[in-house]
């Protein structure tokens, strides 16, 4: 019987050097695939179990926000801007991509706190916990996508064939979400303020990013949008579905590279410091 000797000592990962970290992380991911799936399933089934309308809640949130915007626009309080597809499709598709980020980040950053007692009592992969929570937003995304398809049928418009490329274009925003989710879940485990700050920040960012309105061409918001990676990560996939064309390749590419870097850095930091969280959660 081959037996692995595990050692625990202070600053353990550092002694092995930075390079071995990546193989460690890879092995941990590989070993815990089944655990990650189980945790994902648990979160998914538990979320809507004690609820009458269950999974329909996923539809209600974007419908309410979009409905508010339609109302504001119709009464002339707020100008949505120039959009050449029916507004509900534009807005709900945008919301779907946005929530991939916002809900994903909020649930994953709460994942360690929510599992607090479990973390303090069982030793298991905390990365699986974060990934499983972030994964919840993919399920909501898919459900919202069916809503978008229903709308396409209703308006008798055909989406571009590029809709099939969505999984590919989702990768950067998912990496960004997961990476930030890792780091914020850890910080939230130690300092609870992080969770509150994040939910406020998400609302603010949603209005700052052209999700429910078209990108303004002049003014301060236009300038901010030019440097907002979230704008490229959400609107490029959306344009692709609606028109089949990509207008802002460069922005999307730069934002994707930034996302990948954030993901890697956050993952390494998480790996190095996750042992600190159990005693403080």
């Amino acid at each position: 019987m081959s037996e692995i000797i595990t050692t625990y000592e202070p600053d353990n990962s550092l002694k092995k050097g930075y390079l071995s970290i990546f193989s460690e992380i890879y092995n941990e991911f590989k070993k815990n695939r089944w655990l990650t799936y189980q945790l994902f399933k648990r979160d998914f089934f538990a979320l809507y179990k004690q609820s009458f309308i269950g999974v329909l809640w996923v539809f209600i949130i974007p419908l309410v926000s979009v409905g508010t915007f339609i109302l504001l626009n119709r009464s002339g309080i707020f100008s949505i801007g120039d959009i050449n597809v029916p507004y509900p499709i534009y807005a709900i598709l945008g919301m779907a991509f946005w929530q991939l980020f916002s809900t994903g980040l909020i649930t994953s950053s709460n994942s360690l706190v929510k599992a607090g007692s479990m973390i303090a009592k069982i030793n298991f992969s905390k990365k699986s916990l974060v990934i499983a929570s972030a994964g919840q937003s993919i399920v909501s995304f898919l459900i919202q996508l069916t809503l978008v398809i229903i709308l396409f049928i209703y308006y008798k418009i055909a989406p571009s064939a590029a809709i099939l490329l969505i999984p590919l274009f989702m990768i950067p925003i998912m990496l960004l979400t997961l990476g930030l989710g890792f780091i914020f879940s850890l910080l939230n485990g130690i300092v609870r303020d992080i969770g509150n700050i994040l939910s406020i920040l998400m609302t603010f960012l949603m209005f700052l990013t052209p999700i429910l309105y078209a990108k303004p061409s002049i003014g301060i918001l236009a300038r901010i949008t030019n440097y907002n990676p979230l704008y490229y990560l959400t609107s490029v996939p959306r344009d692709l579905v609606l028109t089949g064309a990509i207008t802002e390749w460069k922005g999307f590419l730069i934002s994707s590279i930034i996302s990948i870097f954030i993901f890697i850095i956050c993952l390494v930091v998480f790996h190095l410091t996750e042992t600190r969280v159990a005693e403080r959660i």
């Binding site: 692995i4 000797i5 595990t6 050692t7 625990y8 000592e9 202070p10 009592k121 069982i122 005693e279």
Partner: peptide, 14 residues
């Protein structure tokens, strides 16, 4: 169990 890590010393588990 490896839930907490020691601040000094070493634990080896086989």
């Amino acid at each position: 169990n490896g839930i907490f890590w020691p601040d000094i010393g070493k634990i080896a588990i086989k």
